[in-house]
């Protein structure tokens, strides 16, 4: 490549990639800088670890980290675990498989907030679920389901919204495996389980990693589901961050933001690595 070509490529990349790197880079940089007291909007900027020290000693913050990680990991696992068998089932077309696929993917069209509303509607104190359970006589009176302490409502919502996405990625990966390759494995004596472990799993692991990582990051930074259906006595990281920002405490918000980035990055690296080990059955 000549210098001229390099200049052309660089200029071409500027408005797209350049902007991405600049904006996202700045955003991440600001988050980290502000968490150390730099880059302040109002007031003095001074390098300090006080904000980190402050929050690391704060129980609410620590609970949020644990809570958001829990939501992220569980949502990713539930979505993928549900999506896998469905994707395998739908790999080869059969009569009605298109319809089933569309029904399963329908939640992709529904905005998360709408999903939350629909769900709350169903599980609310006088909602249809409570009515139904009383009607068939399992429960004596209505139960309070909406803001349960284990965030089951949030997890159901996350799975409801994200499973179709995992399904989409996994079906794509699965359809990339040719029939002959699976037949060859059968011919060499591999039963259903061996075919899954040795052929399907390793060949779809990258699709699965993509699904896990994206779902995990989305769920770790969840705000809307948490506010509407989450436990009252716990806050997600995004909720905490927005709270600090609303009070004008940018530095603490930055600490929480930086934490979220760290959790998102490390969490997805760990999850991606783990899924590779689990799916491949070996380190390689």
């Amino acid at each position: 490549m000549t210098a001229r070509q390099w200049i052309t490529v660089t200029l071409l990349l500027m408005p797209g990639l350049g902007l991405i790197v600049w904006l996202i880079g700045t955003v991440v940089y600001i988050a980290f800088a502000q968490s150390f007291g730099l880059y302040n909007i109002n007031g003095e900027s001074a390098l300090t670890t006080a904000y980190w020290a402050d929050l690391l000693g704060n129980n609410i913050y620590l609970r949020s980290v644990r809570y958001s990680t829990y939501i992220g990991v569980m949502s990713a696992i539930f979505s993928v675990v549900l999506a896998y068998p469905l994707a395998i089932w739908l790999r080869k077309p059969f009569t009605g498989s298109m319809t089933i696929g569309s029904i399963l993917k329908a939640p992709l069209l529904v905005h998360g907030l709408v999903a939350a509303f629909l769900f709350v509607n169903v599980i609310s104190y006088h909602g249809i679920l409570n009515q139904f359970m009383q009607w068939i006589g399992i429960w004596d009176g209505p139960h309070r389901l909406q803001n349960d302490n284990n965030a089951i409502a949030v997890l159901i919502l996350q799975t409801w919204k994200n499973m179709p996405f995992a399904l989409l990625l996994l079906t794509g990966a699965l359809q990339g495996i040719s029939d002959d390759v699976l037949d060859a494995a059968r011919d060499l004596g591999a039963g259903s389980w061996a075919r899954f472990r040795k052929i399907i799993a390793p060949l779809t692991v990258s699709g699965m990693q993509a699904a896990i990582v994206i779902i995990f990051i989305g769920a770790v930074s969840d705000f809307a589901f948490q506010v509407i259906a989450g436990p009252i006595n716990r806050q997600s990281l995004a909720q905490l961050m927005v709270g600090y920002k609303g009070r004008g405490d940018w530095n603490s918000a930055a600490v929480v933001g930086a934490t979220m980035i760290i959790v998102a990055l490390f969490g997805s690296a760990i999850l991606a690595g783990l899924s590779k080990i689990v799916m491949r059955g070996r380190l390689k």
Partner: peptide, 9 residues
Amino acid sequence: FQSYALFPH
């Protein structure tokens, strides 16, 4: 197999 059907991974 006519199409080889090797395991790509």
